[in-house]
Amino acid sequence: MVSTGIPLDTAAIISTALEGILYGFSVLMFMGTMWVSIYHKPSTNHPLALAAILLLILSTAHLVIDIIRLEDGFVKYRDTFPGGPVAFFQDISQPTFVTKNLIYALQTMIGDGVVIYRCYAVWQSLWVIILPSILWCGSSVAALIAPYYASQATGGNIYTNQTAQWITVLFVLTLSTNLISSGLLVYRIWMTERRVSANRATNGTMMPIVHVLIDAAIIYSAALFTILICFVCANNAQFIMLDMIMPIISIAFCMVLIRLTPRKITPSYFPTFSMEINERERRDSQQYPMKPLQVHVSQWIHNDGME
């Protein structure tokens, strides 16, 4: 299959520039996430804070490797690599290309794993996350196998190599995992909101949480779907989107944490909305038990001195 779209050397420049811009936003989002986590220390979820740190580290490493690839393609091997910069960026067996794809694999595994964790935190049921977990395992395998086949490539571009099959499987499974997990998460919150809205004593609502989760899912899913379409069509624009999705994953992740944490919904960041109204009443009754009321009546007699 012949690649279409912009030349690979041009795509490398554009993708690295756009990735750098989005990386700057992801750093700001990460700083906001850490500030919120420290300021609201009692409600900090340490595994999720660790996930945010790992996502930023992986995004940083990916950007550094892209910068190294630019230096190698346009400066170091400009006159010595057969075919020039275009052939250099087309060679998927380059160690830098394999490494950056391994980093993407880890970033995807963490991002999808967090989405599944959110789904479990809301449903509190392992049965619900069986399908997303299976899809996550499949995408993880594909994400690790694809760089291996890329490293073993002896020629041709990414669209004609066996790597293309595993990359296609990776994008399909990752997109499915994100859509299913996010759909289950939003559905659970929405159904719980409908169930408790009629009995709520205050004006609070969980719909802003739904909007935040939907926004994060749309950002991530739209980027994945664009990459999948470009890859299937053998369009080199997929290289641009693939580099951009690294900071996008971190941005979407931190966006949810920043928007939800200040609300202090529950001590674990992601609330368990499956709690019923009667359970809340039972908990309140245990916290404030009814006690017998003792009434003391005092009688006051006025004596005016008359018999």
Rank of each mutant, 00 (worst) to 15 (best):
I248A: 09
K291T: 07
N236W: 00
A222Q: 07
I180F: 13
Q94A: 07
L8E: 08
R69G: 05
L22V: 06
D91V: 07
I167D: 06
E307R: 12
C119I: 04
A216M: 04
A164P: 02
L173F: 12
T177D: 10
A153I: 05
S139N: 11
R282M: 14
L173E: 06
W166T: 00
P271L: 01
M31Y: 12
I158F: 09
P289F: 01
H62M: 00
T10D: 10
I219K: 10
W35Q: 08
N278F: 15
I227P: 02
N203M: 11
Q90A: 13
L135S: 09
N161F: 10
Q294C: 08
S26C: 09
A61S: 11
H296P: 04
G113D: 05
H302R: 14
I214C: 12
H62F: 06
D66E: 14
L185Y: 06
T261C: 03
A49R: 12
Y120M: 00
V295G: 05
L102K: 10
R69L: 12
E19P: 10
S221L: 07
V128K: 08
A252N: 01
M1S: 09
I301M: 12
A51M: 07
R280H: 13
F225K: 02
I14G: 07
L126T: 11
A217C: 02
G20Q: 09
V2Q: 14
R200I: 05
T261A: 03
I6D: 07
W300L: 15
Y149E: 09
L179N: 09
Q124D: 14
G84Q: 01
S298C: 10
W190E: 04
A52C: 10
P289T: 02
R200C: 04
Q162D: 12
L185C: 07
S93T: 07
K264N: 15
L8H: 05
Y23W: 14
P271V: 00
R195G: 09
H62A: 02
V98H: 05
I189V: 02
S181A: 10
G111S: 14
P292Q: 05
I301L: 11
P47W: 06
Y117K: 02
F74M: 06
M29E: 02
E281N: 13
L175E: 03
I57M: 10
T99Q: 08
T163M: 15
V297S: 08
T4P: 04
E276P: 00
Y120T: 01
L54K: 10
I277T: 07
I249W: 04
L56C: 00
W300F: 15
F88V: 05
P85K: 00
S140P: 01
E281R: 13
T16N: 11
T160Y: 06
C254E: 01
L58G: 02
I251S: 01
R283C: 13
G113I: 01
I130T: 11
Q238N: 09
F81S: 03
L184D: 08
E193L: 10
A87F: 12
I218H: 11
M241N: 08
A146G: 07
L242N: 15
E276K: 05
N235P: 04
I6M: 02
P271H: 00
M31A: 10
